[in-house]
Every structure is written in structure tokens, then in C-alpha cells.
């Protein structure tokens, strides 16, 4: 069970108010919208569902869980290196690297501990273990934060509307829960990335003009 203290720690880490600058990253969504893959509420939900289940969502959950279970710094470094090698595009590394570094730096400043830069999911997993937080809700909130951040990006990029954005979040919440449950027993042997077009949009975003997001 999640205690109230633990729930508030996770709420702090994974809320849009946490200073990792998540608002700057669209994970290729800006290109998916520009290329016409995402045009309305239904196609946004389908796209984000794919990213969660077949792309970065599920795989980040596995990296987070592996980092959570890591027993020493060397293992953590190996997981981080594997996550970097697994990133599909340069901007995918950039968003995970910058958010992870900001998270590690901030937490080290406010509650001590290591400040070695790690990719975002790896950093969250390592910190969650350090604070004795339960894995499953940590992963669920991480995935929900990832998804909600992309819904916020969509609100700025296309006609969606606040209630449309909330409907997408409600529709995708059960998927976040299921992926969190699966990550509990998953290992890095279970990695599988098949959001190929999602990868292509992340690559194409590098040269997109004009653009308002960093990724």
C-alpha cells in the first residue's frame, strides 16, 4: 500500500510543477501533428496509446523497474547505458537526459544522495528504491505523467480543448495501470520497441521548421 507520505512524494516528482522542464518536450508529437498523423481527439488517443504500449512508455517502465531493483552503482550505470543505446533518436536521448539530470540534481540538493546524471526513467527508479517507495504506483504515475505531458503539448499544437484533453487522459489511465503491473515482473529481456513511425517522427522533428518544442 502507498502511504500518504509516499503518494505526496510521487505527486511532487511526477507533477508538471517539478522543475525538469517537461513542457519543452513533445516526443515527436509536434511532427506527428504537422505530418497529419494526429488531427483530432481520437487520433491523438490512438497515437499516445501506441507510444505508451509499443514505444517509450512500456520500455521506460522496464528501465525504471530495472533501476529500482539495481543493487549497486555499476548495475545502475549499465542500465542507463542500455537505455541510451535503446533510444530511437537523438531527441529521445536529449529529453530523457535533460529531465533525468534535472531530477537527480534537484533531489540531491533537497534531500541528499547521489547526483550522478541518469536518464529520467532510470533516475526515478533509483530514487524510488532509495526512498522505499513501492514500484507499481511509481511506474503508473511516471507513465501517467509522460502521457499527460504529451496531452498538454497537443493542447498547444492542435484544436483539442481542455475537456478533450481530460477525456484522452481518462481513456489512457487504465493502460498506464496495466503497463505498471506488467513492469513489476518484466526485465530488460522483455524490451520491445515497435512504434516505428513514432521513431520516424522523432527523427524528422530534428529538422522541422517552425517548431515550438525541443523534441
Amino acid at each position: 500500500m502507498l502511504t500518504e507520505t509516499q503518494a505526496l512524494t510521487l505527486a511532487r516528482w511526477l507533477s508538471p510543477a517539478y522543475p525538469v522542464g517537461g513542457f519543452a518536450y513533445s516526443h515527436g508529437l509536434e511532427t506527428a501533428i504537422a505530418d497529419g498523423h494526429v488531427t483530432d481527439e481520437a487520433s491523438l488517443q490512438d497515437w499516445l496509446s501506441d507510444l505508451l504500449e509499443h514505444g517509450a512508455g512500456r520500455n521506460d517502465a522496464l528501465f525504471l523497474a530495472a533501476a529500482f531493483r539495481a543493487t549497486d552503482d555499476a548495475e545502475l550505470a549499465r542500465i542507463d547505458a542500455t537505455a541510451r543505446a535503446f533510444a530511437a533518436a537523438r531527441e529521445r536521448v536529449i529529453e530523457a537526459e535533460r529531465q533525468g539530470a534535472a531530477f537527480v540534481r534537484t533531489e540531491a540538493a533537497v534531500s541528499g544522495g547521489p547526483d550522478t546524471p541518469l536518464l529520467h526513467p532510470v533516475a526515478i527508479g533509483a530514487r524510488a528504491a532509495r526512498h522505499g517507495l513501492p514500484l507499481r504506483p511509481t511506474v503508473a504515475l511516471y507513465l501517467h505523467g509522460f502521457m499527460a505531458n504529451l496531452v498538454s503539448a497537443a493542447l498547444r499544437l492542435m484544436p483539442l480543448g481542455q475537456t478533450g484533453g481530460q477525456r484522452v487522459q481518462i481513456a489512457l489511465a487504465p493502460l498506464c495501470e496495466r503497463l505498471a503491473a506488467e513492469a513489476k515482473t518484466g526485465t530488460l529481456d522483455d524490451l520491445s520497441s515497435t512504434s516505428f513511425l513514432g521513431d520516424v517522427t522523432a527523427m524528422r522533428h530534428e529538422t522541422q521548421q517552425p517548431r515550438i518544442f525541443a523534441t
Partner: peptide, 30 residues
């Protein structure tokens, strides 16, 4: 040290999977 890693697992109705928008949007080759 890991430099590049790609992993994919496809099982069952792969055509339906490839039809998904962020997967392959119906592409048949990759």
C-alpha cells in the same frame, strides 16, 4: 559497452499491429 540496441517482439495478428498509427500506419516493410 552498449552502443546501439534494437529489440522487437511481434506475435499474433502482426498485420493489425502494423496498421496502428504510430507503429507503421499500414506499412508492410521496414
Amino acid at each position: 559497452a552498449p552502443l546501439y540496441l534494437d529489440a522487437l517482439r511481434l506475435e499474433g495478428d502482426i498485420a493489425a499491429h502494423l496498421a496502428r498509427p504510430a507503429v507503421a500506419n499500414g506499412a508492410g516493410a521496414m
